[in-house]
């Protein structure tokens, strides 16, 4: 009886361990998005890493950048996140806002509220690298970040 119990406990332990490791593997894995057909040409852009790359989110390049359409010919309907192109800022930010709710963004960081529809999300945030530089700012770096735009001549 006691041996049976012991075996049962062992098997449950092994099972849960494998499940946990598999779940962890799933969360970390970025295979899906990096095997996207876009990557056939865009290997030179490096790998897609970071939070948005994880398989659990089930995102592809086109989830944010739009369907291929005419690309690489121009004009095309691809979404490019940058302050230096002619795609309207509101349209660019609307892509992020499909998942991220404005009220929640404002609650987690007040600066979202005052910059809404005035600054591109991509002016501060980077999604492709492993970590978004905005997530690891020190107090000093943070104020320097503000000064990139807000500064007057002395």
């Amino acid at each position: 009886m006691s041996r049976n119990n012991w075996l049962l406990m062992l098997s449950v332990g092994v099972l849960s361990l494998t499940l946990i490791s598999q779940a962890a593997h799933c969360a970390d894995s970025t295979e899906q998005i990096n095997n996207d057909s876009c990557m056939k040409c865009h290997k030179r852009n490096g790998k897609m890493q970071g939070h948005h790359a994880q398989d659990g989110l089930n995102l592809s390049c086109s989830s944010c950048h739009g369907e291929k359409g005419n690309h690489p010919k121009k004009p095309n309907n691809l979404m490019v996140f940058s302050a230096d192109n002619e795609i309207p800022l509101i349209a660019q930010n609307a892509v992020c806002l499909t998942c991220h709710r404005a009220t929640n963004l404002g609650k987690s960081e007040w600066t979202h509220n005052v910059h809404a529809q005035k600054v591109n999300c991509s002016s501060c945030h980077q999604l492709h690298p492993q970590t978004d530089p905005m997530m690891t700012l020190t107090a000093k770096q943070r104020s320097i970040e503000c000064q990139r735009c807000h500064s007057v001549q002395r």
């Binding site: 404005a102 009220t103 404002g106 007040w110 509220n113 005052v114 809404a116 529809q117 005035k118």
Partner: peptide
């Protein structure tokens, strides 16, 4: 000291 936000999204201020 920061107080706010005042106003409605997207025209809020502190």
């Amino acid at each position: 000291e920061k107080t706010g936000p005042f106003g409605e999204y997207p025209n809020q201020y502190y």
